[in-house]
Amino acid sequence: MTRPSWAPDGIDLDRPSASRVYDYFVGGMHNFEIDRQLAQQIEAFTPNVAETMRANRDLLRRCVRFLVDAGISQFLDIGSGIPTVGNVHEVAQGRDPSARVVYVDIDPVAVAHSRAILGADPDTAVIQADISDPKAILADPEVAKLIDFDQPVAVLLLGVLHFVSAEADPLGCVAGLRDAVAPGSFLAITHATSDGQPAEVLEAQKLSGRTSTEIVLRSKAEITEYFDGWSLVEPGLVHLPLWRPDNPDDIGAHPEQSGAYGGVARKH
């Protein structure tokens, strides 16, 4: 197939990418036929999967607004994916023009396109790095240029930790990030779960093994461990639509069908 201008050389166009599958589900335009085919197979098992992905993006926007209103002006968004409308810097700078954002993703397609979108914005940057190596993220010069770790910072891990295997020690990775930030900082997490999910959802999860980033479903108790020592803000760790909805009508009759939990915690 013809390689589009936004896809850098070296990207395998014949293997689906988790970030491009996600981009497809949230209505983005930066995905290939191989990604759409896998997305459609997943959707055949779980017809509400696109709604789940959009619920995650909606929570991101609500979360960023909450954090800016709480006094946060610097954001480290790890696992940021391919930019779509309503990204962190758009929402944050719309409320606080001085807000600074560093996007972090392991996918070179996501990183390359992010750089094209961000252009010359001096208050944003994007780096290619892996959540499983938090020391490399924290030591990156682009991060050091924009993020002052002596001041409160929001660490966003929205929809990324379920791509980290047990062997990669996700608890240790998150602990390294928690330890690096100042008191008054916030940690936001959304994570896919097996809790209460029907058999077809669990079967669809197996399809993720065809990408380079298999999804690992975890329980509410397991996800809660990521916030160890921090105070969860209301309403705690809940299904995505239940986290500070803009309107009660947005929750729907079955918020558990989002198949994921979301929560925000503060460091004392």
Rank of each mutant, 00 (worst) to 15 (best):
G94N: 12
P134G: 14
T213C: 11
S231G: 11
A99F: 01
L157P: 00
H30L: 06
N56C: 09
V102N: 01
F25V: 07
W243F: 11
W243H: 04
L146G: 02
L76R: 04
S73T: 14
I117M: 09
G10V: 14
L207F: 06
A168R: 07
V91R: 08
D228I: 09
Q40R: 12
T124I: 10
M1V: 12
M29I: 07
N31Q: 07
S212V: 08
H30N: 07
H239C: 08
V264Y: 00
L38R: 00
L76W: 00
P134A: 14
D69H: 15
G79D: 01
H113W: 08
R57Y: 15
N56A: 11
V216Q: 13
P83H: 05
H191E: 15
D35R: 04
Q93A: 14
R20T: 07
E167D: 14
R210L: 02
A50G: 10
D96V: 06
P141S: 11
R95Y: 14
I11G: 05
I78N: 03
Y261F: 15
D123L: 13
I82F: 05
V174I: 12
D35L: 06
R3H: 03
A175C: 09
V85N: 10
D35N: 07
G71Q: 13
K135E: 15
V155I: 15
H191T: 10
Q128Y: 08
A44I: 01
D246N: 12
I82E: 02
A99I: 01
L161H: 02
N247F: 05
L237C: 10
D195Y: 09
A139Y: 04
T211N: 07
D150R: 05
G27R: 13
